[in-house]
Every structure is written in C-alpha cells, then in structure tokens.
Design a protein around this nucleic acid. Structure first.
Lengths: 185, 185
DNA sequence: ACGGTGATGCCACTGAGTGCAATCAACGAC
DNA sequence: GTCGTTGATTGCACTCAGTGGCATCACCGT
C-alpha cells in the first residue's frame, strides 16, 4: 500500500492551473490549491517556491535547449542570427504542440500584474542564457547582452502573434518574420 | 499651526531608502519605515502602492523625457539610432548628477530578488514607452518593440559600466559605446 | 529487524497589503 | 464669522503569502 497518492507535484500544478483559469490568479489561495490537490498547504511550498512559480513550472528546461542550439550554430554567423536560429529550432521542438495550453496560460498571466512581473524575470533569465551562449561563441559582452534581449523581444512578439485566435503559422515562421521586420525597420 | 509636518511622501521615501541601505530591503518592515518618518504604517500605503515602489519612485518622469527626445529625432533616422539618441540626451539631463545615489540604490536592488523583479517591470515599461515613440515615427510594430528592448538593454549595459567604481565617463558615452559594440558584434 | 531518508502534515508566527470608518486642520462659499 | 467640504492622516481588524521547526511514517538498503 502506498502511503501517499503519487505525483504530488503534478497534482498541485494541475489544481493550481485549473483554479487560476476558473477564478483568476489573485482570487485563488494556496489553501484552495492544496485542498483541490488533496494535500496540505505547507506541502505546496515544499514543491514550489511561491504561488507564482507554479505558472512557470518547467520553463528552465527549454532555456537550456535554446542555449544548446545557439552554441551549435556555425561559427561566423552573426550573434543576432545565431540567437534567432536557436530560438526557431527550439520553438519547433518545444512549443508547437502546446498552443491550446499556452493560450490559456497567456490569458491567466495577462490578467495578473503579479504574474507579468514574474514573467519578466523569466524573460531576463532567457536573455541571460542566450547572452551566455553568444559569449561562448566569441561575442563581446555588450554585444551578447543586447543581442540576447533583442532575440527575446522577437521571440515574444512572435509568441503573441502565434497565440492570436485564428493563427495557423508555426512559431518559428513568426520569429523569422519579427527578425526581418527588425532588420528592415 | 500646521496639522502635519510637510512632505510626508518625501519623508517616507527618505526613511525607506536609508533603512534599505542600512539593513537591506528584506529586513526592513513597512512599520519601521513609517516610524522613522514619524507616520503611520497605513499612511505609507497611501503614498506607495507597495514596499517595492518606493525604490523606483519618480522613474516614470524620466521615461517621458526619453520618449519626447526620441520623437524629436530627425525623421529618417533609423529606429535604433533614434532610440539611442533619445536615451543619450535624456541621460545627460537626468542621471549625471545622481551617480552616488544610483550606486547605493543599485547595491540595494542587487541584493534583493524582489527588487530585481520589480526592476524588470520598470525596464519593460521603458521598452514599451520607447516602442510607442518609435511607432509614432512610423516604425513597424515588431520593429519598434524589438528596437525598444534592444535600446533598453544598451542603456542598462551602459548604466552598469557607469556605476562601476572608478568610472569617469559620462553615461551617454557608455550608451554610445554599447550601441557600437552591438552593431559590430 | 533497524536506522536513515524524504515526502508529507501540523502549528504558530511574521509581515505585506486592504477595507472601512473616524478625525480634524484648512479652505472656500456665503 | 460660520458651515460644509475636502483631503491627508490614523487606527483597527482582517486575509493571505511565506517560513521555521518539529512530528510522522512508509519505504529502502543493510
């Protein structure tokens, strides 16, 4: 006999996300999340550093893949192109199948200043990760940082368009489009 | 006879900043801030939306000046150059005299994840403001957004260098340098 | 059998942020 | 000059996030 139902982490995440979709982030308390997951309030904080983190669970893994793709770009490619190419490759692998969920999550985040704040931190982390990968390819400090942020900006411009109702185009297309729009701006 | 000592806002801001420098942000409570300012805890929240906001008091005004400078750039200038030029002009006016304070504040922010989180929101606001100014000059949606973020990245790369102990160069020089580093990267 | 490990649970506590009503100087209307 | 209004401040009570410490107890290796 098992002492506990398995996958407390997953149950907490699912409970949290469904409550956030139903009631919004701010109106949901950690106590409610724990109750729906059949767990103690304290247990929530054993698995997630805070109430906001559950929304972004599992983002760090994709950052790693993006960095790997960037490092694998042919030497001599200029930094911005390398970063964009890495984002495009990773986005095909990671995002394409999640559009439904991404739209729902996007709506939850858009409705909560607190979550937008945390999202900015995640963007900064991604920008730093990209910048580190670019520096490994020999890009200067400032060049890498600025390219990292520019690439992140393109990525999120593209992700917004990808999330629009009715969009059929793959995310990587839209990243490429944002890149071209920037270069010719 | 005055009912209250004047400038509650300023007293709260000064009390807060001095306590943050002395003890760090997390170890300072709003009650302590109010006490040092000779005011009630509740009054703090009438002047600042939350404990973090006091650190960034008065940033919005500089955002406006930056946007104005960008809109005043000669038509035909490409967006990134216009944004950088606007930042350089505004930084001469706004930042040059505050280096001491900026260094202290920078240390407070660097020591607190909560404040870094809020700082990212402020950067996002600045990026949006710049992007809006660029759109007014006819730049495309994506081009303006990406240029806005790239300009903000340059600005903060430059501000970091400007904050380094021993730096003598004006902020606008360092912005220009970051810009050139990006273009030749 | 047994001691260690780690996930879970319980309790009490601090501190941020909020809603609401009360106070009372200053000020303008008349 | 009186009076009603305004607005900054106060006090209180409340919810809820997040933390620290300790107890519990299946499971696992020895």
């Amino acid at each position: 006999m098992v002492r506990w139902e398995p996958d407390a982490y997953g149950r907490l995440r699912d409970a949290a996300l469904s409550l956030f979709v139903e009631q919004g982030f701010e109106k949901t308390t950690v106590a409610q999340i724990a109750e729906r997951a059949g767990l103690n309030r304290r247990t929530f904080f054993h698995h997630f550093a805070d109430k906001r983190e559950v929304v972004f669970a599992g983002q760090l893994a994709s950052d790693d893949l993006i960095a790997t793709e960037i490092r694998a770009q042919p030497p001599g490619t200029d930094p911005l192109h390398a970063a964009v190419a890495g984002l495009m490759l990773a986005s095909d692998t990671l995002y394409e199948q999640y559009r439904e969920g991404a739209i729902q999550l996007g709506a939850v985040i858009a409705a909560s200043p607190e979550l937008q704040e945390r999202e900015m931190v995640k963007r900064a982390t991604l920008a730093d990760t990209i910048a580190a990968a670019l520096r490994d390819r020999g890009t200067s400090e400032a060049g890498a940082t600025v390219s990292g942020w520019a690439a992140v900006a393109m990525f999120f411009v593209a992700r917004n368009r990808w999330n629009q109702p009715g969009n059929q185009r793959p995310l990587s297309d839209l990243i490429d489009e944002a890149h071209k729009e920037f270069l010719t701006a």
